[in-house]
Design a protein around this nucleic acid. Structure first.
Lengths: 161, 161
DNA sequence: GATCCCATACTCGGATAGTTGATGTCCGAGTGAGAGGGG
DNA sequence: CCCCTCTCACTCGGACATCAACTATCCGAGTATGGGATC
């Protein structure tokens, strides 16, 4: 069970977009070259982010992607779910109903599966951490570890330098 | 990112094995039919559990699988890691090093990636829940929701009835 | 009746195909920008 | 000098190959059992 590369790319792109001046945008091509990933495939992740209402896209020259909401209103879980989907990390197939000692269990209403319950609990813990982390926090912590000169240079490069 | 069916099967098999009388064992064939899953494929999960030292296998007639440790010494994380591997759910590819504004970043030593740090934090929360849950707790909660008659019948069926 | 031996059937274990989803690439529709001509 | 129009290049969006991992299946090596023959 490993998250796809698209999740990592999407998170880095959201961070990059959050570092841009308000009102400006960066193209998929720029974002792809900036991160060293295939442009057309990254576009798929950006489309997913746009479909989820996290970024806005504008076409034509000087077009590109920009954040659709304030960084404080975007959680990491929003980004991940936009790319990977909203289903749980554990899918209970209810195999306990196949118990041969229990004919008719397929149709009965049963108490919740205790194994699935624990897996859901772990899944919720994972989601809770990501739900509480907002893009603002990422932007702040990045600013504390990255040299300001690099931040400025990257911002200008993304805008079309 | 979804856990494979093998994880579910392994967890149910561990629960079944934990319900057996000490010293007894159940064969892969029985476990597969009991859960309604393909026998040969379930065997792969059982082999992984054996390789991780969670179950012991004995060959020949009257052979089969049995728990290698006390249920109190087995956490759900042990079972999941035995089947799915021990790598994290998030793999940081360090794409920040591809930043064109930062030549030579590939070889420099950098402060930790803040995005990866959050993902690791969420991963740790997920693992922590599963690490604290022991097989004993599953067995107890199953006993509280399943009819005792069904438990006895299932145990006898698994042993070879 | 007890002991030793052997054939047997059952077990696990690793090696082998098939299928779904993730990954990577391509081309077309749409659009805003900017140049050029006219008023 | 200002405004309108048209062309164009650039953008996103969806459709098309490629690859790996999960899923599913098969057959062979090894072994404890149980019966039978022997002492």
């Amino acid at each position: 069970m490993i998250l796809g590369s698209q999740v990592e790319w999407a998170l880095h792109c959201m961070t990059a977009l959050g570092s841009l001046p308000p009102g400006s945008s960066a193209t998929a091509k720029r974002l792809a070259e900036f991160h060293g990933v295939p442009k057309e495939y990254l576009a798929k992740a950006l489309q997913a982010l746009a479909a989820a209402g996290l970024v806005e896209s504008s076409t034509g020259p000087k077009g590109g992607y920009s954040l659709a909401r304030a960084p404080g209103d975007i959680s990491l879980l929003d980004v991940i779910e936009a790319v990977e989907g909203r289903q749980r990390t554990f899918n209970c197939a209810e195999i306990r109903r196949n118990n041969p000692c229990w004919p008719g269990a397929r149709r009965l209403k049963l108490p919740p599966c205790q194994i699935a319950a624990v897996m859901y609990e772990a899944d919720d813990a994972w989601r809770e951490v990501l739900r509480k982390k907002r893009l603002t926090q990422i932007l702040e912590s990045v600013r504390t570890v990255a040299p300001p000169a690099l931040m400025d240079a990257s911002r200008d490069w993304l805008l079309g330098g």
